[in-house]
Nucleic acid binder design. Structure first.
Lengths: 332, 332
DNA sequence: CTGAAAGCGCTAACAA
DNA sequence: TTGTTAGCGCTTTCAG
């Protein structure tokens, strides 16, 4: 590996000048000298060692991202937005999947901090107690999707889950359904709980009952949705409509409904939550509450790098109800 | 930040001993001494600086992964498998999306090498000429999905795309279809081309024509599949069945078929390729050719770290035809 | 078994 | 405008 001193020798300058040229500063360099250095860099194929650079400058140009599971389209789309923004700013992303394992989150959080990342973004959909224990507070942290976490100096980016769920459910009510079920998330997930509460709120506002028999606490997965809807359809009286806490569950529910020989939306209307790309391509198309995932991802990165790093910001993004075939609205 | 020397002072030992304890070597440490050091580490909350460590030891414990697009479920599932394996081995993953931009691939490749990654995995589905130019050969490289690349000292992991496509198409032939179309990938994608060739081969083997009018070169996306199938259904005579080069396109085609008012599989039978999780949840369920994505991801990491780094290995993984509702086979 | 010290490749303060 | 050099925090060789 060719290193700085070889370039300096070749260009007939000191090591410092090579550095000044590579970094465009902090000292100016005469144009003729700069050209000589750049020529030497080119000829030798010199590339500065990022590790040495990071050690000396105390800046790694990397940020750590922990997501629950990048195989979940919602998180994949969010991660992609985050990556676009970090790439545009010249940062690299260290990525870790929680894969439903709290110890793994902790491990990644520690490792990333040991690697001296310049910032940390954690996307959570489950319990967050461990976070406060593992986060050392040395670099900025932004939490996406979940609530502000107690005792943690972190900004957050989220949507109003309860309100979104309320909107979705209200829409089902407006279709005239009275037995509207809820496929909720795991009980230890804040978004899961909040979306359940929104469903409850909407039903009560409409003067409808929201009994436990209409609720299934399921995993945030295709299978979770499929199994939950089967149980709901097997109960009697069966629901006429269902609000699912995530699109993934809703798509699973679409499948489970077909398995039960029930048609959508006539036999069962369905509304999901998230607005993932796949929801536009189901048959029938999935009605959903769309999160502005691109905006949220980009904003998370902005918050991480904002000048005034001291104060925490808690941003709540707007939700859009998207009615499509599965809720009983005409397609298109 | 507390550092090594403070720990040493606190424990009443030299800096070297702290290092020996933290790394379990390379020199042995008396048990009593080790306990004193560990106690000091604990009390002070010492965490070794990974950057300094990497500079000195010439090992970063990180590997770089470039994928075409992590929002694509196939690549997301592959990336997840790769991450499971790197995590198990104590490595962190730097992840970059190509996002269809060759310059971005190049940028990530350079950046990752500048950061002194211990290995590089590149997942490609497009042209690969730039790779050879950008890869410096200093760390091991494994290429996944695509062909071995000319002039590049890299191992590869892939499936026999042509054979898989042939299998899928042959299966459609066995259902008695004679007008079987092909939704192929972009022309500059090797897997796209090979899958097209497999379709062609199967048709010819069955004594059927494989005219260009039955082929649509589409993007590897939901939309690509939906648009392609609309064109095919609008042509006359319309095909009775279609082989799609990816499940994503096939799922898009499912949607496009519904838009055309044609039912699946009676009006149009469909078989995809990849075996993504989502394929099990479409209505009807998507028949496909499954790639062993978990195995492939893990194997890519194994190849990266294999002892005998010198020789290249080109592994071809087995494919499984999975018949489900969309090809006309009974569900389950 | 433990300590002293060199040096990984670079940035930037200080000197010229 | 350019050169000299300390030192980022650690691993590991060499002495003891």
């Amino acid at each position: 590996m060719v290193k700085r001193d070889e370039v300096a020798r070749r260009a007939g300058v000191s090591a410092a000048v090579v550095s000044y040229v590579m970094n465009n500063g902090p000292r100016p360099v005469a144009d003729a000298t700069r050209q000589r250095v750049l020529a030497a860099v080119e000829e030798l194929g010199y590339r500065p060692n990022g590790v040495a650079r990071a050690l000396r400058s105390r800046r790694t140009w990397s940020i750590g991202l922990v997501v629950p599971d990048n195989s979940n389209p919602f998180f994949a789309q969010l991660a992609h937005a985050i990556e676009d923004e970090t790439f545009a700013r010249g940062y690299s992303l260290l990525v870790g999947n929680a894969s439903g394992d709290a110890a793994r989150v902790e491990s990644y959080l520690r490792t990333f901090q040991d690697r001296q990342v310049d910032g940390l973004i954690v996307v959570t959909n489950g319990p967050t107690e461990d976070l406060a224990r593992t986060y050392e507070g040395r670099v900025p942290l932004v939490i996406v999707v979940d609530q502000p976490v107690r005792g943690l100096a972190a900004s957050t980016v989220k949507v109003d889950n309860k309100e979104g769920a309320r909107l979705a459910t209200e829409h089902l009510v407006s279709h005239g359904f009275t037995r509207i079920a809820c496929i909720a998330g795991p009980r230890d997930s804040a978004p899961g709980r909040e979306r359940y509460e929104g469903w409850q709120t909407a039903l009560r506002a409409a003067g409808l009952a929201a009994p436990d028999s209409l609720v299934r606490w399921a995993e945030f997965s295709l299978r979770g949705g499929a199994e939950a809807v089967r149980e709901l359809l097997d109960s009697s009286p069966a629901p006429e409509a269902v609000f699912a806490a995530t699109d993934l569950q809703a798509i699973g529910a679409l499948r489970g409904t077909a398995d039960a020989g029930v048609s959508v939306p006539d036999g069962l209307a369905i509304v999901g939550f998230d607005g993932i790309a796949e929801a536009e391509y189901t048959v029938p198309r999935l009605a959903t509450v769309r999160q502005p995932v691109g905006l949220m991802g980009r904003r998370a990165v902005e918050l991480l790098f904002r000048e005034n790093g001291g104060d925490q910001v808690h941003e709540v993004f707007p939700l859009t109800l998207v009615s499509r075939g599965t809720c009983g609205c005409p397609e298109r």
